[in-house]
Each structure stands twice: as C-alpha cells, then as structure tokens.
Design a protein around this nucleic acid. Structure first.
Lengths: 253, 253
DNA sequence: AAGTGGTCTAGACCACCGG
DNA sequence: CGGTGGTCTAGACCACTTC
C-alpha cells in the first residue's frame, strides 16, 4: 500500500475547517446553541484565530451561524422565506403589504436613482423609508423614491411629518393605474444606516431588490429594498400559486 | 477653533479605505484598468496588507473589482442583467432558453433535494448539469433534478452519454403539462465544482436560485442554479413587459 | 471587570500566471 | 523566472455585552 497520499493538492485549511464545522453543526448542535469562543475553537483545531474566523465567516454567510460582538456565536435557525412580488400588480402601500412606513423626506436622489426615474437633474423626490419585519426580526429596509409628479395631490398640502407623511405619499400613489413592474436582485453590502436598522455591522452582505413601478409609460416609483442575506431566502411565487414549503433546506451539495 | 475632532468614534480603517477607493474608481479609473498591486496599495495608504485586502474584498463583493491570482486586480464592468423567469410557464430546455446542457447522470440526490421532490429515500433521479453563458463569460451553473417518474419515456432506453443524454431528459420533460413554478433566491458560497465552472475560487459568493416545477400536483423537477454574485444582477420581468434599462446602476446610497 | 467578537499589524509562504 | 493574489500565523488592541 505504501504511503497513502491524503491531499495531493491540499485544500485550504479554512475550507476544510468549514466542512468539519458544518458537519458538526448538523450532528452535534441544536438551533440557538452557543459555540465555544473563537480563541478556544482555534486552539482546539490547532489554527490561528484568523483562519478559524475565515471559516466562521463563510458559515455565517451561508446562514448557518450568527455572531454578535460581546455575546458569542450561535447556531442560526434555517433561513426564513420572505415573499417578494407575491402581490403582483400592486403599488407599495397597498392594503396588506408587508412593509411598515417609517418616515419620509423630500430630497434630491442619488445619481443611480435619477437615471432610473429619468427625472431631471436637481429634481427632488419624495423618499419614503419603510421597514419589514418577519418572525419578530427586522429583515429588510427600503427606500422608496417617488417623484413629485407621481403624487400631484401632495403638492399644495402642508406636509405632516414622519410616518404620517409617508402614509400620505403611499395613499396618493394608489390613485395611479399601475401598468407593470420589473425587479432585479443583486448582492450588496449594507450601508451604515441600513446596517443599524437590520441589526448588523456595516458592510454586512445584503440582497438588494430593486423594483421599478411603471405607470403611463414612465417609472412612477422606484423601490430599493435591502434584505439581510444571512437570514433571508427571497421567494417568488411566479404562478401556479403553490406554496414553497421545503423544510430546513440546506444548499444542495 | 481649537482641535477639530475628525472622528469622535472612528470608523474602521477598512471601511474608510473602501469609501476612498470607491470614489477613486468612479473618478480616476476606467473599466478594465488594472490597479496597483496589493502591497503597493497598502503601503500607499499606510495600512497592513490584510486591512487593504478587507477593503478590496468588499469592493469585489459589490461587483466593483475583479481579482485574479497571478494576474492582478482590475476594475470590473457593470454587472450584467441576467433574465430569470422571463420565459414563464416553460420547462427547462424549452426552445430558446439560455442554458446549455453539459451532461447527465443518474444518482441519489442530496437530502435537501429529496425533501423538495418528495421522492422516496434512496430513489435515484436524473441529474442534468447545464451551464449558462452571457457576454462570453460563464455566469451560472445548474443542477437539474428530474425524478425518473417525470420522464417515463426514458426508462427502457439505452441511455446515450453526456450532453446527448441531458438533451434526451429535457426533451422528455416537455411532454408533461406544466402547472406552475415557484422560485427562491438566496446567498450561498460556491461548491468546489461550481467554482471551477464559474472561473472563481471555492467559497466565492453566489446567488442560488431554486426553482420548483410543478405538474400534476407534484414537483416534477427541481432546478438549483448558482449565479456569480459578483458579476450578475438577476432580473425578473414580472409583468408589463418593459425592459429594465438603467445604465451603470450603482447601489443607491 | 471579564469575556466576547471585530479590527489591525508585520511578516511568511504558497499557488498561479505571464513572459 | 518574477510578480500577482491567496493563505496562514501570533500577537495586540478595541468595542461591545453581560454580570
């Protein structure tokens, strides 16, 4: 038999470590349980803390772990399915949508939004902030950009402030006839402000869902929603109406 | 004026660095241009290489940079929009879909797939591998799980191998009437095999799109597609039919 | 105050790509 | 071969939570 060559091209330590930890999580830990601290774990596996952290970071990215400064590392529950685009053909703020208005300001939007809205440069829009909660945890923060021309009813009104004003903008939106909407999903990292609202550190990975609402051939509103990528699975019930109910759902591997 | 306190609660260096680099990318670099190497950049900013790398990692995650071992770091082009779920109500392999069959095997699927397919334990399924190319670059790898019961026409046939067999399975699928489909998107990290196919390192961030195809009240096929998260923006044209054509599209910030 | 995860350093070596 | 990004180390200090 001679010498058995275990790793002709050895895989990185952190990768192997991640696999080992992943299997341990499946077999020896229960949801919510706290792991030993990083220094102990690193010592136990005979690696530097930085290497151990590289493995933990990946597992957190995959939604297997949850880490909180000053507290510890815990086994994360399975990702929650969050419905996106179920209420087809409805404006934001339509009865029964999952969002809660937070406040509203009138300001000049960032350049990327100006592009999408095709508003003139320097033109102010209503910016409605909303948040979304699922299972008691905040899962998403949204910025909804509404050009003044989409909500003409608001022009002369003495604006209330905060959430009341946000609701007023949403109410006005419903008067328009919605022609359609399209949506894009991409990976991003949380801005400092979103991170605070999502109870994460700045730079945390998020799924950015951009939705364009079209009325009268124009983009009447633009929603940019950032979902916690570690805890959320975005679900799209395109048709057929069947619920996607597939248990713990590990990544097929 | 006294001493101006710049950072009462200083933000992390890597975060500040990322901002500085991001602005430099916008103003002083063009797509495809190569940046100075990491050791030089770190020295220029007066930080350790590890810290500089933390900033670069974030920028790569956001699709602003592209790094390749042995080559260097280049300014990435804007993310490509990849249509997902445009061809509503169509089986995989329907004429004109974006995927290219690679090969096909018959094997027992992972546990998570068994759950979703509701096949019995130990029951083998056809596993079709497909790949998707956009703008000359591979953007996604797919594993399509098809229970034998969904393609009865294949049972007695002497199976051809490789792509031909994959095409045969897809052809058989079209005979079923598709009742509906639902889809989920979540963040994952590339398995070693997918990473190779996507020209990335193992563990690279990917968007995992799971699609369940329903026929006769059962899940007749399950697709698990992993898209490069750094280069892809998944687009869903839910309705209205308007193209989403919003230029360079930075994250609204 | 004690303990946790988060940031940062300075250095080393490795795997890969190109000329 | 030289240069690049990728991995790994051993240590230090900081920010935060909890007791």
């Amino acid at each position: 038999m001679g010498t058995t060559q275990l790793e002709p091209v050895p895989e990185p330590k952190y990768w192997h470590l991640k696999t080992v930890l992943s299997e341990a999580l499946d077999s020896e830990f229960t949801v919510g349980e706290i792991l030993p601290n990083e220094r102990d774990l690193a010592a136990r596996f005979g690696v530097a803390r930085a290497t151990l952290r590289q493995a933990l970071e990946q597992l957190e990215l995959e939604g297997r772990l949850q880490r909180r400064r000053g507290v510890g590392t815990t086994v994360a529950p399975p990702r929650v399915g969050v419905a996106v685009g179920t209420e087809q053909e409805a404006w934001p703020g339509a009865p029964g949508d999952a969002w809660q208005p937070v406040d509203c300001a009138e300001a000049e939007p960032p350049a990327a939004v100006v592009d999408a809205l095709r508003t003139g440069p320097g033109e102010a829009v209503h910016i409605v902030r909303r948040s979304r909660v699922s299972h008691g945890q905040p899962v998403a923060a949204e910025l909804l950009y509404v050009p003044a021309s989409s909500v003409p009813g608001l022009s002369g009104i003495d604006a209330p402030s905060g959430a009341a004003r946000a609701r007023a903008v949403l109410r006005e939106l419903q008067h328009l006839e919605l022609d359609g909407q399209d949506r894009a999903v991409e990976l991003g990292s949380a801005r400092a402000e979103d991170a605070r609202e999502l109870d994460r550190l700045p730079g945390a990975p998020v799924l950015v869902v951009t939705t364009r609402f079209v009325a009268r051939g124009r983009t009447a509103a633009l929603s940019v929603a950032t979902y916690r990528a570690d805890t959320c699975r975005l679900t799209f019930a395109d048709s057929g109406g069947l619920e996607m109910d597939h248990g713990p759902e590990r990544q097929a591997s």
